[in-house]
Nucleic acid binder design. Structure first.
Lengths: 343, 343
DNA sequence: TTGTAGGCGTTATCAG
DNA sequence: CTGATAACGCCTACAA
């Protein structure tokens, strides 16, 4: 109803000047304890909360964040990069400067080097998606030691002291995939193929974990085969899949933990199977959307990239201001997408 | 790296005053086309982006919106009200004043009366969830005629000229429920119960439509029974469900289109069935969350209330400023929630 | 130790 | 149609 109180109101109520109020609010030295108390009393009484954007405007403060991502070598990474770029415009207007750093997906040393090259007091926060290697860990340590917030995105870096992880609970995502696969295969017995580019990736690891957990518990009629690692090699992927189909007569499901869904689709199509397995993959991309539409993929487990980018930026901003953030509000949902609820 | 250009820079570059730049930027009338072009050129050239926080600071404008909802008589409505209240604080600091109007759920006349009692030039926008009755239609007409934006929420009012509908595509939601129910019932034959409080409700109607569409197409092994309308009467609900179970030997699924999920759960529990039907309901509430956890509900079709409230407010704000809004960005997702991807 | 005056980038209100 | 000028809420000199 009534407008928010301002520093003016506090000043008046406390019988002091604006500058003094400011000093108290920002815990600057040079204020008598008694007047400080008066101000605090007024603040409490009027229920004052300072207008951060006005403060930032006055301070000319801009947040300088770095977003480090592997170079896009698939549609998902393309979408993620695009979302970050888009965020640069959308939220870039909130006094947030986002600088993107890309590194060759297969060379985590590169990202460590790039991070090390950054001047720490020109950076207010780092968001990154990267594999957890010792080099990366060390590079991040430098930031966290300097009080510069770091968030991991999409795939966590559990053995670093990143301030937060922004992404889905990948174990739960694996469980979700398992339930869908189990129920969608109806009462059939048979084998399930699991594949990803690399199990050196935290997200893949956790997804497999959750997947196995549910499969063992609830769907003993299905046998989950060892994970096929494709290392981004489409031919290798095709070879391994075909070989697996030769070795097992009753493959009823395929769960793709990571990238490579276009190759997977191609491979399955060219094999021209008489019975189509239930296919569950991760991430909404132009390809997976199309595949949902033509029913060559049965379900997609997704995470909203816009949410992720915004959340990462919000968390970094909070960290940079040494403020708490509402952890519930930053939780990323595991989305289940079928043909019917696309869009 | 160099600082962002400001309106001053634009003004200087275009050889006009601050005020003119502002007029152009905010698409206000009263600027010669030639000067407007000059300003636009300067904006493009200097790559100007306006500082939203400064803008908001300067705009002491507060939007006065009304949110009209039926009184909470179930957990979903409670959650919705709570979300609106919460929005009052969260976005309330974005210079948005939200006033809530509640009316007895069973008495749509009341809401029409309350809307009519509002002074139109003290309101900048109306969001409402209400049944579409002639009274409501007339009441809304008064607002839209006055150029005051109106958005329908959750359940659409297609025969009014509300500016926008904020909620899920309920036909698609019905289709989604159908696919899940169909696949989750595996290969079983049998009947499916559909129930809701009232089919006078647009959302229920559309959901049933989509549900039937898929059922007929894809699951001929299942017979969908006529919708049971419970009119919010728990005893009636229990009676009808029990009777239906007596009349049909192979009920394998239940789809609840609307409220009444607690009663449904109670009823099913007390019937102590030997074979549990697949149960699919709408909306995440404390009850449905609990029921997902204990597996008495198999899937929930949900919509994110926070998104809905925020979207409604954004759309109203755009309408109130006579601006376009990005319709893609305001699309509400149909969420599928299982036990595994809760939270 | 405290207060005054000016500015941050934008918008609003007047005149012209 | 256009341009000064004063806000908005806060911070930072500098002066007292």
């Amino acid at each position: 109803m009534s407008a928010r109180p301002t520093t003016h109101d506090i000043a008046r109520a406390a019988g002091v000047s604006l500058a003094t109020v400011d000093r108290v609010i920002n815990e600057r030295p040079g204020v008598k304890t008694t007047t400080r108390n008066k101000v605090h009393a007024a603040i409490a009484q009027l229920n004052y909360v300072r207008d951060v954007s006005a403060a930032n405007l006055a301070k000319q403060r801009t947040y300088r964040f770095v977003f480090a991502l592997p170079a896009a070598d698939n549609q998902f990474m393309e979408a993620l990069s695009a979302t970050v770029l888009d965020g640069q415009k959308t939220l870039g207007l909130d006094r947030i400067d986002v600088r993107t750093l890309t590194f060759p997906a297969e060379n985590p040393h590169a990202i460590a080097r790039e991070l090390n090259a950054l001047n720490i007091d020109q950076v207010d926060g780092v968001a990154l998606m990267a594999p957890e290697t010792p080099h990366v860990r060390d590079a991040l340590q430098r930031f966290t030691d300097a009080g510069c917030p770091v968030v991991s995105v999409i795939s966590d870096l559990p053995n670093t002291n990143r301030h937060h992880f922004v992404g889905i609970d990948n174990v739960a995502a694996g469980r979700t995939a398992a339930v869908l696969l189990g129920r969608f295969t109806a009462k059939q017995n048979g084998q399930v193929i699991v594949l990803t580019d690399s199990m050196h990736n935290n997200a893949s690891l956790e997804r497999r974990l959750g997947f196995d957990e549910i499969m063992l518990q609830q769907f003993p009629r299905l046998t989950v085969l060892p994970t096929l690692e494709t290392h981004g090699d489409n031919n290798l992927l095709a070879q391994r899949i075909e070989k697996t189909f030769e070795q097992h007569a009753d493959i009823v499901g395929v769960y793709s933990l990571g990238p490579g869904n276009r190759s997977l689709s191609n491979c399955l199509r060219t094999m021209n199977l008489s019975r189509h397995p239930v296919v569950i993959v991760h991430e909404l991309t132009p390809h997976t959307i199309k595949a949902l539409r033509d029913s060559s993929i049965d379900a997609v487990i997704a995470q909203d990239l816009r949410h992720i980018v915004r959340s990462a930026l919000r968390v970094l901003r909070a960290g940079s201001d040494k403020l708490q953030f509402n952890i519930d509000q930053e939780r990323i949902r595991i989305e289940i997408i079928l043909k019917e609820n696309l869009l």
